[in-house]
Structure formats: C-alpha cells, structure tokens
Nucleic acid binder design. Structure first.
Lengths: 344, 344
DNA sequence: CTGAAAGCGCTTACAG
DNA sequence: CTGAAAGCGCTTACAG
C-alpha cells in the first residue's frame, strides 16, 4: 500500500540528467554548475524529495540509531534517563530504539541479539537484576557495536560507564538517620547481582561502623527494585522481635512499598519509624509524609551516556581508555525522616 | 570501527557456489538439493550469519518498524500503553521507535516528518494537547503510512481509533460524588483541544443535569494534564467564595496536584472535600487518602492499537471502513471520595 | 538443481 | 562540468 516515494532516479529522468548529477547537486558538490544545481534543488523541493535513509544505511553500514535497554520503561528513573539520551541523540542526528528487559536475563539476551541484528550503531544499557553473565555485551562489542552502561553497570565489561556515587549516597542517608537519633537502622537492599545494590549496602554498613552503631544481620534484607518487594520486606522487618526504628531502602520504589506498609500497620513516620529512599522520584515528595531520598540526576545520566556513546561511534579510533563517570548524588531530607530530637 | 558482518557473498565464496544458491538454501527453497542446503546452513550457523535487515528493507520497501508518538514517556499511562504496543509488535516481528511530543505541536510535527523520512511502516499516536491542526497525520496517510490513534484521538482524521468511554467514565464519577451527598461539584477539565477533555467535561455536566444539581461556571476550570496545573487550579477553586465540596479532575496527574494542594491548605479528604481522578495510575492508590479514579485499560489499549495497525500494514487492500474501538472504563472508589452519608 | 543478471536507492571513484 | 559503472547485501524472475 506504500506509495512509491520519489527517488533520485525520477528527478534525473524529469531533468534529463544522470543520477550522479542529481546526487551531487543535492549534496551541493562543487563540481556541479550553479545552473544545474539550482534546477535539481528546485525540482527536488517541489517534489518533496527526501533521501531514502535505508539506502544510505546500506551504503555506509550505519543506521544512525542507538539502542537502549532498560529493565522497565514505566519506572520514572529510566523514562527520565531515556529523555536525556533522546535529547542528545536527536540533536546529533540519531534515533533511539527502546527495549525493556523486564528484569529478565533471557529477555535482555534476546534484546541484545535483536540489536545486533538490527545493526544499531551503539547501545546504552542498564542491566537487569537477574543478569549474572555479561558475555552478551562483550559479544556486541566484538561485533563492533560499542556499549555504554548507566546506573546499573557491568563491572566485568570494559566500557564507558555512567553512574552515581551510590556508596556516598547511602553513607550519607544512613548518617542522616543516625544524626536524627535512630539506633536500629534496617536496610532493604536491592538484588545482589547489581553493583548499585552492593555499593549502597556497603555505604550503609560503613556509616554504622563509623558511628559505632550495632549491626544486625536480621535488619538487612533484600528485595527486587519494586514496590511489592518493599511492602513484603517491611512486614517482615516490623514483625521482628527487635523492631527497627528506621529503614533505609535501596530505591524509592522499594521505599514507596514500605511507606504504604507502614501506614497499613499503623506506624507513624517519622516518630515511630523513619524512612529514606534512593532516586528521589517525583512522586516521593507527594507521599504523606513526604519521603526523604537520595536524588540521582537521571536526565543528566542519560545525556552523559549518550554523549560518551556517540563520541565512541563517531571516532575512528578505539579510545585510549574507557572511563567511568561518577555523578554526585544528593540527599533530600523530607518529613519521613525528620524525627524530633529528644534529649535523654 | 564496525567489523564487517558476514554476508551471503562470503558463504558463497567459501562453498564455491553462487550467492543465489546460498540465498535460496537459507530460505529453504524447494529447488535446492538437500545436500547443498545442509552445507550452506551448517556454514551459516558456524559463521553466525544473520541476514542484513537493511538490505531486506531496501528490497521490500518495508522497515518492520512501528513509530509511536506520545506526549510524555514518563507518564505511566503512556509508558504502560507503550508496553502493550511492544507486546504485540515484537510477537509479530516488528520493532518500535518511540517519540515524545512534550505536548508541543511543533515537536509533534517534527516527529511526524522524521517518521516519514525513516520510512516507518505505521504510526501509533496519542496527540499533543497543543495540536489543533491535524494535517500532518493526513499527509502521512497519503504517503501510505497508516496511522492509528489511541486515547487522545483526532476526530477529523479518518483512521482506526482506540479509546475509552470517557463520557461514561466521567458521568459515573460525577454520579458517584452526587450519591455521596456532594452538592457543589467542581471539575478541572483538560485542554479543550483534546476530545477526551471535552467528553469528560460533557459527562460531568450531564450527570449534574440528570440529578438536578446546579451548574456553576466558576466551578469548571481547565488545566494541562499535569500535576502543577492541578495544584494551581485547586488553589483557585478553594479560594472561591462559593467553595466546592468535591472535585472531579480530568486526569490522575491533575488529581495528584489537587490532592497535594488540598493537604497543604489543611482540608481533609473526603470530609471537607471529595476527590476523584481519571486513569487510575498505580501511584494513586498509594496516596493518603487513596485516590478514587476512573480506570483505563492502558496496556490493552496499546495492544489493540498495535493489532489494528499491523493488520492495516499487512493487508494488501485498504480497509472497508475505519473503526473506533471504545474500551470500557471502570470507576474505582477509594477513600478520597468515600464521604460519610449524613442524614439531615 | 544451479547460476548470471537485474534491481531496491543511493554515492563515489573513474573517465572524459 | 557531467555520465557510466560499480557496489552496499539481498532476492528473484529468467535461463539453462
């Protein structure tokens, strides 16, 4: 049903010149007379000609397209980061193809293969929580398709990476809770496969150690980065004989689940229990009480990842070394953790 | 930097047969001997051959790609609908390219041109609130690229459409507020360019009329479909001499802004004022008090739009007639509107 | 059963 | 200044 688009051949026919001449005129080649150029360009415009990008792709072996794989497009952290990628990509003449892994290794693998098959020029990825083996990214690179990781990076894959200082963010969040007088601080960590989970956990532990706060194994549990997981873990933690008086959740989605559970269970935040999340989603400030959280510059992370990737794609040579850019996180204190300081 | 992928030509060379033979063997043509087929297929597998989709696209004048334009990818309604589109598209061998209009007509226009240029096989779109002129969609169709609208449909463009019964949803939401004893029901409508806004407004008005409730012009205000707009309008409404005792917001994003404003202003929901939204975003149930809302089957809407579009793309003939599929909305009653019934 | 040739839309040495 | 030819990777009538 597709109407035939108008081609260079058609213009050549109408003007009774060769395809070569039309092609050159359109690209404003200096070897074509002004006269001919003018005729060609005018006709092209009146015919509403636009070059077939498919033909160009075949010629150049480039698609001007970036692939993006994220676990879940509906997660505001990722959709915002994607916005940052698009921002840079479009301004540099590239398109984006978005894939979701849905936290599944199989799906991520399939996406990667698809991307290779589609001859995408490069990939930006935040890995799935179930991914342990990272060979598919290496394979992609061996095929000449550069990969840049953001947020959930692969530690074992040599490549550019963009992340936030998870350790410091978690450390500060925990110190903040300590400074508000919390003594029994629990942590709901993310899946251990992900380096962000491990770094946030470490930041939490080190903050406790620094302040000589006792560390209970039972107060550290792990959850997928979603709300349902947070709710479950909150029930589990609050059921303990030694109940925590604060929870630091490894993500806002987890924290939102916790927030909901705590309200269900009749606890008041921050008096009965303080809560801090990670990512500072825009909804977090709307909860009642509003959620304290470690803010991540998601849009900027997307922009930076795209910039690094495009530079990689467009440079003729392999880069001297891969870099890891670490952006700063920023603790936003709101009511959920503003426990009154009582002198005792 | 891209490594040359292995091609049919390379396989032909190694096996000392012609490209034609390789091509046929790979497509399992009956005119090739089993013997040759086997050799070709084995070598292809060991070489990890995959056909170049760009070459195929050039040949067939088809890209196996669907374009999607939504106002904002970070809006959960849209990201979920996109999930539905992807679900169907992938299972039928298509890819998706996602564009955001950011509620801007210019951006939507640019996206449309891009899509035409990229020779996408079809477009799924939910129009921007600032779009009044719909010619760009007609042009796309004239170029042979079918368009299917969902949610925010174009009334003037002949095409398949997928939407929800906005009128009925709004009518029921308003009747529900009336049944809870509300007498002064305000409505924060969406931008009037959008048919969904007009239909929801009409549903609201007709419900009032049916029950003989007075209709005040000052109680109907309009806002962009976002939170900031909801907050502003709530301030405006509550400042009125004749204060409403209920607000029906045309979307959950608006309602969330209202919810926040009401809490700031010291009103209790639902006792001081009842609130109902539209879309039933997953966060709405987490607010305190949880928000009543008219649920839309967003994932299904995406699936249906994709199915209609793919059928259009793959059918040789123009469809007998375009259809508008209207899915049912569903009022979810939560605490924000569960006003106690007082007998007086 | 297999191959040579044309063609999808374009660019670019190579001639003239 | 302009054109004919080759080629990007593939398929498919057309011959044999």
């Amino acid at each position: 049903m597709r109407k035939a688009s108008i081609t260079i051949k058609e213009i050549a026919r109408q003007l009774d010149v060769s395809k070569s001449t039309v092609s050159r005129a359109l690209r404003d080649s200096s070897e074509i007379s002004e006269e001919t150029k003018k005729r060609v360009i005018e006709l092209a415009e009146s015919l509403n000609y636009s070059p077939n990008p498919i033909a160009l792709s075949l010629l150049r072996n480039r698609t001007q397209t970036l692939g993006i794989i994220v676990p879940d497009i509906a997660n505001p952290f990722f959709s915002t980061a994607i916005g940052g990628v698009e921002d840079i990509a479009y301004s540099r003449g590239y398109h984006t193809m978005i894939y979701q892994s849905h936290e599944s290794y199989e799906r991520e693998l399939a996406d990667t293969r698809h991307i290779a098959m589609r001859r995408v020029d490069g990939l930006i990825v935040s890995i799935s929580s179930q991914t342990e083996n990272h060979d598919h990214f290496i394979e992609l690179q061996e095929q000449g398709i550069p990969v840049v990781f953001f947020d959930r990076v692969s530690e074992s894959t040599p490549s550019h990476k963009v992340r936030v200082d998870d350790y410091k963010g978690a450390f500060e969040a925990t110190e903040h809770l300590i400074s508000r007088g919390c003594k029994c601080i629990a942590h709901i960590a993310g899946p251990p496969n992900l380096s962000i989970s491990r770094n946030r956990l470490k930041g939490y532990q080190d903050a406790l150690t620094k302040h000589g706060i006792e560390f209970h194994d039972e107060w550290v549990v792990s959850s997928e980065y979603n709300q349902a997981g947070g709710t479950e873990r909150a029930y589990q933690l609050m059921a303990l004989k030694n109940r925590p008086d604060a929870i630091f959740a490894a993500s806002d989605r987890i924290a939102i689940g916790v927030h909901w559970a705590l309200r269900q269970l009749g606890y008041r935040m921050p008096d009965d229990i303080a809560l801090v999340g990670f990512s500072d989603l825009s909804i977090s400030s709307l909860l009642d009480p509003p959620l304290s959280s470690v803010a991540q510059p998601s849009f900027e992370m997307g922009q930076l990842a795209a910039t690094l990737l495009l530079d990689l794609i467009e440079s003729k040579s392999t880069p001297a070394a891969f870099e890891t850019r670490v952006l700063t996180s920023n603790l936003i204190i709101r009511q959920s953790s503003m426990k009154e300081l009582v002198s005792n």
